[in-house]
Simulated scan of single mutants.
Amino acid sequence: MRNVTDRTSNPFGLRPPFDRSDPGDRTAVFGYGDANADFHVIGNYPGIHGGESTGVPFTETESGLALQDVLRETGFASGPRDEPVLENCFLSYVHMCSLPDGEAPTAEAYADLERFFDAELRAINAHILLPVGARATDRVLREYTTQRRRFDLEMASLHATEIRGRGFMVVPIKEPAEWVDGDFEAIVSRLEALLASDYRQTKGVATTVG
Rank of each mutant, 00 (worst) to 15 (best):
R2G: 04
N3D: 10
V4R: 10
T8E: 06
N10A: 09
F12W: 12
R15S: 15
R15F: 14
P16L: 00
P17N: 13
D19C: 02
D19V: 07
R20F: 11
G24K: 06
G24W: 10
R26A: 06
A28M: 01
A28L: 02
V29S: 04
Y32W: 01
A35H: 02
A35D: 06
D38V: 04
F39T: 00
I42Q: 01
Y45E: 08
P46N: 04
I48T: 04
S53N: 11
T54Y: 11
G55P: 04
G55V: 10
T59C: 10
E62C: 10
E62H: 15
S63G: 13
G64L: 02
A66P: 09
D69Y: 14
T74E: 03
A77P: 05
D82H: 09
P84Y: 12
V85H: 12
V85A: 14
M96Q: 11
M96N: 09
P100C: 04
D101P: 01
D101V: 14
G102L: 11
E103Y: 10
Y110R: 00
D112S: 05
E114S: 03
R115V: 05
D118R: 06
D118P: 01
A123K: 00
I128D: 02
L130G: 02
P131A: 05
A136C: 11
D138M: 13
Q147W: 12
R150I: 11
F151Y: 13
L153S: 10
E154W: 14
M155K: 11
M155C: 08
A156L: 09
A156W: 14
L158D: 03
L158P: 02
T161A: 03
T161Q: 08
T161S: 07
E162G: 07
R166T: 12
F168M: 01
F168G: 06
I173W: 03
K174H: 12
P176E: 01
E178S: 08
E178L: 08
V180S: 07
V180N: 07
D181G: 08
D181E: 03
G182W: 00
D183K: 09
D183W: 00
F184K: 06
V188I: 05
R190A: 00
L191G: 04
L191E: 05
E192S: 11
E192F: 02
A193N: 10
A193V: 14
L194A: 08
A196Q: 13
D198T: 14
R200F: 11
T202M: 11
G204T: 04
A206Q: 05
T207Y: 10
T207M: 13
T208P: 07
